[in-house]
Design a protein around this nucleic acid. Structure first.
Length: 246
DNA sequence: CCCGACCTCCTGCCGAACTA
DNA sequence: TAGTTCGGCAGGAGGTCGGG
């Protein structure tokens, strides 16, 4: 468990901390990681797939689908060997149309590579109105982590992914239980260290509770009754009578 | 429950850079 | 010098999350 500020990017980053800490302390690396779409960003997926070899059972943060009836970038075919897209009319979208005298990396500040069709190809194309009605040519911005996004897209179509979604619910229920039943919806201790301490204690209690459930038999009834009275707060103005455990 | 803040991805625009 | 490509950026879409 890792406490962070209520800030999404920080929360997502803390996953790396937790995975690496477990790796370091127990020499265990997860085979797959199940989470919501907040973790489906390109850099996070790249970290899972390329750096850690973890299967991302995560929905991809993807907005390639167009709603105005024009072709989405999914309609373009990616040619890995040629490092180019091909449009539905068979024309290429390249990142390098010119041989620059000074070599360029082609990677933008946003860690993307821009692929464009030729203006001349588009001008003569019968599909232009369905492809790039508002611009002289078509542009596709491809993340440098697109390969990792493709891995997540492939996994999202498998039955294993559906199974993972169900398993995720079980984990989420523990947090829901912490918040609702154990009333850990607000922290008493201030600061990140306070939050860490409070959560560690809450998680310990929750684990002990689950361990107790796994015991074949509960402790003797008399002990349980005494424990009950020790932990019970007397109501004001009422005497507490010992109660028999059932 | 609704609203605003914040985040990522994507599109379209525009000036800079480059070539013929 | 004109035409084309390149890269950055603003802003929209759509999602999550916290606070009132």
């Amino acid at each position: 468990m890792e406490a962070t500020q209520a800030h999404r990017t920080t929360e997502v980053e803390s996953t790396k901390t937790m995975v690496e800490r477990v790796e370091e302390r127990f020499d265990i690396t997860p085979e797959r990681l199940i989470s919501d779409i907040a973790y489906g960003t390109a850099p996070m997926l790249a970290w899972m797939v390329e750096e850690k070899g973890i299967e991302p059972h995560v929905p991809v943060w993807d907005k390639t689908e167009r709603k105005d009836g024009t072709f989405s970038s999914n309609d373009f075919h990616w040619n890995e060997e040629g490092e180019e897209y091909r449009c539905l009319n068979g024309k290429p979208l390249r990142s390098e149309w010119r041989a620059f005298t000074q070599q360029r990396s082609r990677v933008t500040k946003a860690n993307t590579i821009i692929y464009r069709s030729s203006q001349a190809d588009c001008a003569a194309c019968p599909l232009k109105a369905k492809c790039c009605p508002n611009t002289p040519n078509r542009k596709i911005v491809r993340s440098i982590h697109e390969a990792a996004r493709d891995v997540a897209r492939r996994i999202a179509k498998t039955p294993e992914y559906i199974h993972s979604r169900c398993e995720r619910k079980k984990v989420e229920m523990l947090f829901a239980h912490l918040k609702r039943i154990m009333k850990v919806d607000r922290l008493r201790l201030r600061g990140l260290t306070g939050a860490t301490d409070e959560f560690t204690l809450a998680a310990t209690v929750q684990n002990l509770r689950r361990m107790a459930k796994l015991l074949p038999q509960g402790p003797p009834a008399t002990v349980r009754a005494e424990t009950l009275e020790l932990t019970r707060k007397p109501e004001p103005g009422r005497s507490v009578k010992p109660r028999k455990a059932t």
